[in-house]
Simulated assay, not measured.
Amino acid sequence: MKIAVVGASGMVGSRVVAEAERRGHHVTGVSRGTGGDATDRVFMDTVLSGVDGVVVATTGTTTTTVLDAVLAARTRVIVVGGAAPLRTPDGTGLVLDDTRYVPAHIRPVAEASMRQLRECESHRADWVYLSPPALLEPGERTGTYRRGTDVLLTGPSSISVEDLAVAVLDELENPGEDRRFTVATRVPAAG
């Protein structure tokens, strides 16, 4: 596959690039240091020409530009957002509004992920929104994970960035039916 990764030098994007290359895909990375601007529609149209899939691992103004370019290119995009739009496990509301998951100092970032999902929902592009669990940090690549839809997975609500990248590539290679999904570390079976 030919894959474009927007935010290729960031924590998530760099792991997605590594996982895609590990699987033998051709990757075009877009980041601040690549000499192009992901908010420039003409640039993004050029970058996305002929790609089979796109991964957005950024927030902010790039999302709408990429969605517009993806629609024109007639390809699919996976937007790696945040956990804020997920429903809480107890069904009382959104993760965004639960201080157990989103303390006050994190709220601006969480609100940005809500806006990003709303941009996707209002767009005609072929998008999928991936919400990580409550804790996402560098770690070991196990190659396994649990998958859910729009409810925060707990027990634990964490995953390594490396395993999140595995989930992203699995979705690109074998698309699921959900427009939104989440993942978390696979819990070992009780023995």
Rank of each mutant, 00 (worst) to 15 (best):
G91C: 08
V56I: 14
V109E: 12
V27Q: 02
G50I: 00
P156D: 02
A73R: 01
V6S: 04
P133I: 12
D90N: 08
E21T: 12
M114Q: 12
G24A: 06
G13F: 01
H26C: 10
L86S: 04
W127E: 00
H105R: 10
A20M: 10
P156Q: 01
G93L: 06
I159K: 05
H25G: 10
T59S: 13
T61F: 06
R32A: 14
H123Y: 13
V79Q: 03
T61M: 09
P85N: 05
F181M: 00
A18G: 14
V70Y: 00
L117N: 01
A20Q: 08
D52G: 10
Y101K: 02
T185A: 15
V66L: 06
A189W: 04
G13N: 03
D52T: 07
L117S: 03
A18D: 15
E137A: 15
V166R: 01
I106E: 10
T61H: 11
P85A: 07
G7H: 01
D150Y: 07
Y101E: 02
W127F: 03
E137K: 15
S14W: 02
L94K: 14
A110S: 15
A72Q: 13
A4N: 04
Y101G: 01
V47I: 05
H26R: 14
R15P: 02
V70A: 00
H25N: 08
G24Q: 05
P133A: 12
A84S: 13
M1C: 13
I106A: 14
G36K: 13
D40Q: 10
H26E: 15
L152C: 08
R124L: 14
E137N: 13
E111K: 05
L169D: 01
R87E: 13
A190C: 07
A110T: 10
I78V: 15
R180K: 10
T154Q: 05
I78K: 02
A8L: 08
V151E: 08
G36I: 15
S49T: 15
A167V: 05
G191T: 15
T58L: 11
A134E: 07
A190S: 11
R41S: 11
P188H: 11
V12R: 07
R124I: 05
S9R: 08
V54L: 06
L136T: 03
V51G: 03
G29D: 14
G81S: 06
V161F: 01
L48N: 03
P175Y: 00
E119S: 12
V109N: 13
L135R: 11
A84T: 04
V79L: 07
D170T: 08
G35R: 10
T61S: 15
D98R: 08
S157E: 02
N174D: 12
T88C: 10
L96M: 11
G191K: 13
A83N: 06
I159F: 06
T99H: 06
L86R: 04
A83S: 14
